[in-house]
Design a protein around this nucleic acid. Structure first.
Length: 463
RNA sequence: UCCCCGAUAGCUCAAUCGGUAGAGCGAGCGGCUGUUAACCGCUAGGUCCUAGGUUCGAGCCCUAGUCGGGGAGCCA
């Protein structure tokens, strides 16, 4: 007999059929005389299946004694309509096997709820909880929706390198990759010589696949990357990780408006897909974590995003009458409180801001005719803030060189990036979406460290 | 990196003015029960984060550190 998963039994299990179900015991309720109830979860869904174990099965007393919260069991039994309230069907065990016990004196997970801080220290066991099981399923559904979105539109999934020697991407601090003996180096006083290092030059972990994505976008058409990204910034916030996953589409012949259209359609589609596929899990988060969650996700799916320029946003903030801790001024980057005001109070909608001052944005963003702004776009959502950052890329060879110099970069370091503009250049655009921030958006979880299975942050990389 | 807060039982927390270490939950045992965060009774369980210091006496005050949380910056 093949295994039946709990989700299947609860959804479609027909009374009278015999099933083999295996999983981990969440609770045991024991009647000393006649029988015991076990609630088993196998991660296939939020709910547990109730197992009724009659005292007449062989070895009953010793089996039940071995079972406690966390134990793994295999049950063969018949599906029956439940006499009790709370579940449509249950499984009456014909045989019960304890696969692994979980000593209640030491097993960290209790029947009661635990704080997320505590569970972060038990990253090897937290997927066995309701919340983290649900996050795992939702994250999976999101990834699947992301691939579906792009595949349905003919995008090619390209793999950009994780180790890179273009030390100059400008997107933040890089984790260095080396095989040099650091202990030995510490003692020698000579200058560093990377020619003896593994790659013969300074190498690091990628902070973005964008530049390499542009290579393929200007060759095979629409592409996207989806992989791990690393930032060695000493960031200690609820929305930053040292290792996170990023989706980066890059499209030739797209101007900024096309880029915005795609980004908006992308976010709304994947949110809609997850709403459809994970409704039970999302209801849990709506009930237990963030009471406005479902309404805010519906709002995203049903309404167009607000689009306005950075300049107009600054005007709105200046005339809002709202007291900000940090003053608003054209030319300065918007503070978190400004972004939050726009999405949470003023528009109560996701907002796409465009045309930021060139002085505060990256070298690769296309310069506007006004000489003051670039064709950048940030998608801001309530609760999270920036979930997407993107731009139309500067495709004019001479303008790009000037811009690099303006940003204090050495054009020769980007020789291959510049050659894309020298040979058959085309207008093109792209953006990056943070996967974990999207998980935050969709689940209502407030700390990004709970939105990735094994979070890496300053001073923390266990498991 | 900066600002604020915290660390006490397995978990979540309390401990008045510096004076004998507490509760709820969990766990064990017993009782009861088609139960479902079950319920009732009893029991066990402590290097008060670490290292110094002040004091007759420190969980509490001081200094340094470690780790955690929230906010800011950097950004996705």
């Amino acid at each position: 007999m093949s295994l039946t998963r709990v989700a299947q039994i609860l959804k479609a299990g027909q009374p009278g059929t015999t099933v083999d179900v295996r999983g981990w015991v969440r609770t045991k309720r024991e009647s000393k005389q006649d029988f015991a109830f076990l609630e088993i979860n196998d991660g296939s869904c939020m709910k547990n299946v109730q197992i009724v174990v009659d005292a007449k099965i062989p070895d009953y007393a010793s089996l039940i004694k071995q079972i406690s919260t966390g134990a793994s069991v295999a049950v063969v039994g018949e599906i029956k309509e439940s006499l009790g309230k709370g579940q449509r069907v249950e499984v009456h065990a014909q045989s019960l096997k304890v696969l692994g016990t979980a000593d209640p004196l030491t097993y960290p997970l209790q029947k009661k709820g635990h704080s997320f801080e505590f569970l972060r220290e038990k990253a090897h066991l937290r997927p066995r909880t309701n919340t983290f099981g649900a996050i795992a399923r939702i994250r999976n559904a999101l990834c699947s929706a992301i691939h579906n979105f792009f595949q349905a539109r003919g995008f090619l999934y390209v793999q950009t390198p994780i180790i890179t020697t273009s030390d100059c991407e400008g997107a933040g601090q890089v984790f260095q990759v080396t095989t040099l003996d650091l202990a030995k180096l510490q003692q020698s006083k000579g200058p560093l010589d990377y020619s003896h290092d593994f790659f013969g030059k300074k190498a690091g972990l990628t902070v973005s696949g964008q530049l390499e994505g542009e290579i393929f976008a200007t060759a095979v058409g629409d592409v996207y990357t989806f992989g791990p990204t690393f930032r060695a910034e000493n960031s200690n916030t609820t929305r930053h990780l040292a290792e996170f996953w990023m989706v980066e589409p890059e499209m030739p012949f797209y101007e900024l408006e096309d880029n915005m259209d795609l980004a908006e359609s992308f976010v709304r589609t994947i949110v809609k897909d997850v709403l459809n596929r994970c409704s039970e899990d999302l209801e849990f988060f709506n009930e237990r974590i963030e009471p406005t969650l479902l309404a805010s996700l519906q709002n995203i799916v049903e309404h167009d995003f607000i689009r306005l320029t950075y300049t107009d946003a600054v005007k709105i903030l200046e005339t809002s009458g709202h007291k900000f801790e940090y003053p608003v001024a054209w030319g300065h980057d918007l503070q978190s409180e400004h972004e939050r005001f726009l999405t949470e109070q003023h528009f109560k909608q996701p907002v796409i801001l465009t045309d930021y001052p060139r002085a505060i944005k990256s070298f690769y963003m296309r310069c506007n005719e006004d000489g003051k702004t670039v064709r950048a776009m940030d998608v801001l959502v309530p609760r999270i803030g920036e979930i997407i950052g993107g731009s139309q890329r500067e495709e004019r060879h001479d303008v790009l060189i000037d811009r690099m110099k303006e940003c204090g970069l050495v054009p020769e370091d980007y020789w291959w990036y510049l050659e894309l503009r020298q040979y058959g250049t085309v207008p093109h655009s792209g953006f990056g979406l943070g996967l974990e921030r999207t998980v935050q958006l969709v689940t209502g979880m407030t700390n990004i460290r709970d939105c990735i299975p094994f979070p890496r942050t300053p001073k923390s990389a266990d498991f």
